[in-house]
Write a protein that binds this DNA or RNA. Structure first.
Lengths: 221, 221
DNA sequence: TGCACCATCTTGGTATCCCAAATTGGTATC
DNA sequence: GATACCAATTTGGGATACCAAGATGGTGCA
């Protein structure tokens, strides 16, 4: 038998990994047969994924949420608010030694690290940084925002220059946080998030035609 | 037959209205018979309410989330981040005429307004103010935070002095926002949220014994 | 040939049944 | 009298049967 949250995890994996394209229709029966589960766990999974914004109701049926450029821009504003608050909180803590763990995480990526790993670590940087604040709500907010951004970020990972720039910015943010310079850390983080958003939205707007050709629904800003 | 989200709405109402006490055990079978629905919609309702933080899993069963003082303090920090970001965003908008609607909402409360109405308007002030920002994520964050605070806030409503103070602060925030003074609006809002948290936590810590006597679970900070 | 209407199938929503695990209450033993 | 163990009931999780509404496609009439 499958583990408890198996349907949910596997389905989320397929959606986040773009194995099921943004905008695709989903039927409970298809998921049921695909994962060998019955409708009860399928429905639970869909309800959870709905709150994560990964699937939505399309009239009567279910749809994998399209990539929404307007939403990406709004998320950037939201992230800026919560991540800046989190890093400021972290800077005010006495023990900031856990920052080293995040630094190590960044350093674990080198030239022969697979794309998936860069993608994951790029998100985990922000999530773990928020976790350091000790505030559960700021942490969850960042984690949920990164989940929503996850699919769009596959594109950024393909750009070497953007990646090394992002990593440099990540290191600079950590350095400021480590010495407790809240203002500088906040400033760098803001710049990073806004820049990241710009690159992402531009890149998506350019690739939009190609993405649609692959069957990925991309909603304009 | 009952409407689609009837179980969820009614159950949420009972929890938020303290008709079911914080910390109480819930069984799917009880909810089923109580609302005349079957288990499927009951489970959907529980899953949704779980993401709202109103119910939680207690081993195998379900429990109405206790009032958690530590959580209230963390929510205040979270609120401060998102509400301040929202009001700053609103101040940067050209058309801030919708502020008048919120002002009118505040003025609709007078001496012979029932408690429930003060309670609701006190929350809607923050929710509607966040909505003005036009950012869906900031709005949802504030709405969810207020939902989580809702039960604890029943206590504050009993304190006349605290209420009139809160209303004065609300008006001052609106005034600053109306003239586009983002820094002042942000400052006033921060002060309001922190003060509100202090009064709430103090009040709850004092009433804790009484609340427990009524069967309400209150978890210390 | 084109359009409207009807039969059929699909789909999500609901109700009910089954099961495994855990809680509970009682009893027997030390 | 306390405790350990066992049975029975309760409970949530999963599976399945059923239903009403909507989509679909085919057919017949104009």
């Amino acid at each position: 038998m499958s583990q408890m949250h198996s349907v949910e995890k596997q389905l989320r994996q397929m959606i986040l990994g773009l194995e099921i394209g943004p905008g695709e229709k989903l039927t409970e029966r298809w998921i049921e047969s695909r994962f060998g589960a019955s409708r009860t766990p399928v429905r639970a999974a869909l309800l959870r994924l709905e709150t994560e914004g990964l699937v939505g109701r399309d009239g009567r049926g279910w749809t994998v949420s399209p990539i929404n450029l307007a939403e990406l821009e709004q998320i950037a504003v939201y992230r800026e608010a919560v991540e800046v608050a989190a890093v400021r909180l972290t800077c005010s803590l006495a023990d900031r030694s856990a920052i080293d763990v995040i630094e190590a995480m960044l350093e674990s990526c080198d030239n022969d690290t697979p794309r998936e790993e860069w993608h994951r670590v790029g998100m985990d940087f922000h999530i773990e940084l928020a976790r350091l604040s000790g505030n559960e709500f700021l942490f969850r907010a960042v984690r949920d925002a990164m989940t929503r951004l996850s699919r769009a970020r596959w594109l950024e990972v393909r750009d070497e220059a953007a990646l090394s720039r992002a990593w440099a910015e990540h290191r600079a943010i950590l350095a400021a946080a480590r010495r407790g310079d809240a203002d500088e850390a906040a400033r760098l983080l803001s710049v990073h998030i806004v820049g990241s958003r710009d690159r992402l939205v531009t890149s998506l707007a350019n690739d939009r035609r190609g993405l649609r050709a692959r069957g990925f629904a991309v909603v304009a800003a």
